[in-house]
Design a protein around this nucleic acid. Structure first.
Length: 614
RNA sequence: GCUCACGUAGCUCAGUAGGUAGAGCACUUCCUUGGUAAGGAAGAGGUCACCGGUUCGAUCCCGGUCGUGAGCUCCA
């Protein structure tokens, strides 16, 4: 080790890496091991600290609340750590101070983390004697011959490691929240109490992280949605059902207009379809068998049962079936901003991100097998273009394969999965496989964009489907003048307009780019002497197609500016006597800067130019 | 759906050891006519989420329902 680095660097080392494995610094070395240091500033180093913090928290909890607290698991997470406990009495945030204080004592004691290797049988006896059934159950699932336990002070935990050398390295930590969590993530098993915390090597980092959380909170789309009057959710209407207020509705219209234009350019035709359909149709499509738990309850109308739509595909299929199709028509690209309803459990609803009624920017492409690859390419290109237009350039791509419950033959699934995979690879796009996460009728490519809170939101989805065409017996006449079955691609790029808008609000903190800002400019007068001029400027801008408001209230300019600023309006158009006399306006930008006075028509032209999307 | 927490005026929040409530902002009216982030005054506004229970009496205590938040589970 000494040979590896200088003394200063050594202080910075948390663990070492030997090939794939991470090892404690206390690990005995063999001559032939090649070691690589894991430092404090590496992601692995931080993970090790946080994992150790989880152990220290568990130790504190056991010491404070007695050995009848059962410990489950406690890993590091993306932004901290947690530990799951089974305890009769609920933890409350009031307990945090005591647990943190106890943790501080453990840190101050600089307890070494020591590793012991035991056989599985020995370990089982050890945890049985300690009265820790969750640990025993974990051991039941371990196939290796030996396991390791880590001790610090009197606390011992089943753990692969590695850990920090001793508890004094935990310099900056904070308990964050309490939540319920099912043992092993299974809702049929006991609900445990999960304590979340976060930890860093130094206090500055912790402070920075907490500050980041504060900033993220300011961008919360639910808060901004209310403040900017974009959308609301009403008890009168019901949970998970979005009401778009005028400003939000206008932004949505701009998004939809752009979407429609872009689709027209890319060879799509627009459809409209109804919100309900006969139950029989949902039986044919397989939704009743495979998607019923997500559907709203059926309704009877004149002895026929109908059901709200959770997807648009069967409606597009019905349109497909209106005439005999020829291969010469292909590819058929049909798109629709289709509003669907899905039953979501109350506990999972969240603002615009998770709702019960939402509009998909859906499309279905019917094509020949030999057109499949190119169509997928086209979709990916259009997809990335649209995301880019909205300012999203960072995303994770997933390839989701066949789920447990599915329709269709294995052969079809394999063909479809292969097609998606080939497309991603030929495009040179990095992706991860999400096994078993496909839809019941086909595999899919999902693109998840990240919001400021670091949450990844699934928006885009591209699905290849050989199965619904079969179920609905879709056909086209091929060159051989015989009937063949078309392939169907389902895709949504923004995914849900609601969710996408939510991500947009957080992405821009409500300060939308000019082209999609519901209000682009607000005309503010200084005194009543300019009332007539305010009106003229307002009318002229409105005629020129600028989305403009005016504030001619009897208030001070400061006050009007403050309001417009809080409303995140891109341009404030200020008119006083000076402007009135010269037939000009003074423009103030969102960032506080002022432009030179200009004519109203020049300003309108400036807005027109800047609002161009591409 | 599950666990925990929360639910007071449009918004943000006080408050009552159980005796039917208060601030700031917003709103209305009046005064003020003021050049780049809150001028002043007055007024209106709440069956303290809803339903039951305990009590002489409940916004406050207890139970249930609904809703919200953080997670779990599930997903666009």
């Amino acid at each position: 080790m000494k040979a590896l680095c200088s003394g200063k660097e050594r202080k910075n080392i948390v663990a070492v890496r030997a090939g794939e494995r991470l090892l404690d610094l206390s690990e005995p070395l063999t001559a032939d091991t090649v070691l690589e240091p894991v430092t404090k500033d590496s992601p692995e180093g931080l993970d090790i600290l946080r994992h150790s913090a989880a152990h220290i928290m568990a130790q504190a909890v056991v010491e404070l609340y007695g050995p009848d607290v059962k410990v489950a698991i406690g890993p590091a997470t993306e932004d901290g750590f947690y530990y799951d406990f089974d305890r009769k009495e609920p933890f409350s945030p009031d307990d945090f101070a005591a647990i943190e204080a106890r943790m501080q004592e453990i840190v101050a004691a600089a307890l070494p983390f020591s590793r012991e290797t035991l056989s599985v049988a020995e370990a089982r006896k050890f945890f049985q004697d300690k009265g820790q059934p969750y640990k025993v159950e974990l051991l039941d699932g371990i196939e290796a011959e030996t396991v390791s336990i880590y001790r610090q002070g009197d606390f011992a935990d089943l753990c692969r490691g590695p850990h920090i050398v001793n508890s004094s390295l935990l310099q900056a930590f904070k308990l964050m929240r309490i939540a319920g969590a099912y043992w092993r993530g299974d809702e049929k098993r006991p609900m445990l109490q999960r304590l979340y915390g976060t930890a860093f090597f130094d206090a500055k980092e912790l402070k920075k992280y907490l500050h980041h959380l504060e900033e993220a909170k300011k961008r919360d789309h639910r808060k901004l949605g209310r403040e900017l009057e974009l959308f609301t959710i009403s008890d009168l209407v019901g949970p998970g059902l979005i009401l778009w207020q005028p400003k939000g509705a206008l932004a949505r219209r701009l998004i939809e207009d752009y979407w429609k234009d872009e689709h027209y350019r890319n060879g799509y035709e627009l459809l409209y379809t109804p919100h309900i359909a006969k139950r029989d149709m949902w039986a044919t499509s397989g939704h009743l068998d495979f998607y019923a738990e997500n559907m709203f309850s059926p309704m009877e109308v004149e002895d026929v049962t109908y059901q709200l739509k959770p997807m648009n595909c069967p409606f597009h299929i019905a349109i497909y079936k209106t005439s005999k199709r020829s291969y010469r028509e292909f590819p058929i690209r049909w798109c629709e901003l289709g509003t669907v309803y899905r039953f979501e459990r109350t506990g999972s609803l969240q603002g615009l991100m998770r709702v019960r009624g939402f509009t998909q920017d859906d499309a279905h492409i019917f094509c020949l097998p030999e057109q499949l690859e190119e169509e997928i390419f086209n979709i990916i290109d259009l997809n990335l273009l649209i995301l880019q237009t909205f300012g999203f350039t960072e995303y994770d791509i997933y390839l989701s394969t066949r789920p447990e419950k599915y329709v269709g033959s294995d052969e079809n699934w394999q063909k479809a999965t292969e097609a998606l995979k080939m497309a991603l690879e030929k495009k040179g796009l990095q992706y991860r496989v999400d096994p078993g996460e496909g839809v019941f009728y086909g595999p899919k490519i999902d693109i998840k964009i990240k919001d400021v809170l670091g949450r990844a939101w699934q928006c885009s989805t591209i699905q290849v489907d050989f199965n619904l065409p079969e179920r609905f017996q879709l056909a086209y006449t091929a060159e051989d003048s015989r009937d063949h079955q078309p392939i169907m691609i389902h895709r949504a790029l923004m995914g849900s307009l609601e969710r996408f808008f939510g991500v947009l609000i957080e992405h821009y903190a409500g300060a939308f780019p000019l082209w999609m800002a519901p209000v682009q400019a607000k005309v503010l007068n200084i005194t009543d002497a300019q009332l007539d001029y305010v009106d003229r400027v307002y009318q002229q801008l409105r005629q020129a197609g600028v989305r403009v408001e005016k504030d001619s209230r009897n208030e001070k300019l400061n006050y009007k500016i403050r309001e417009a600023q809080l409303a995140k309006i891109p341009y404030m158009v200020i008119v006083g006597d000076k402007e009135k006399d010269t037939e000009t306006v003074t423009v103030r930008l969102r960032d506080g800067k002022n432009l030179e006075p200009m004519s109203v028509s020049d300003f309108a032209e400036m807005i027109r130019k800047e609002s161009r999307i591409r």
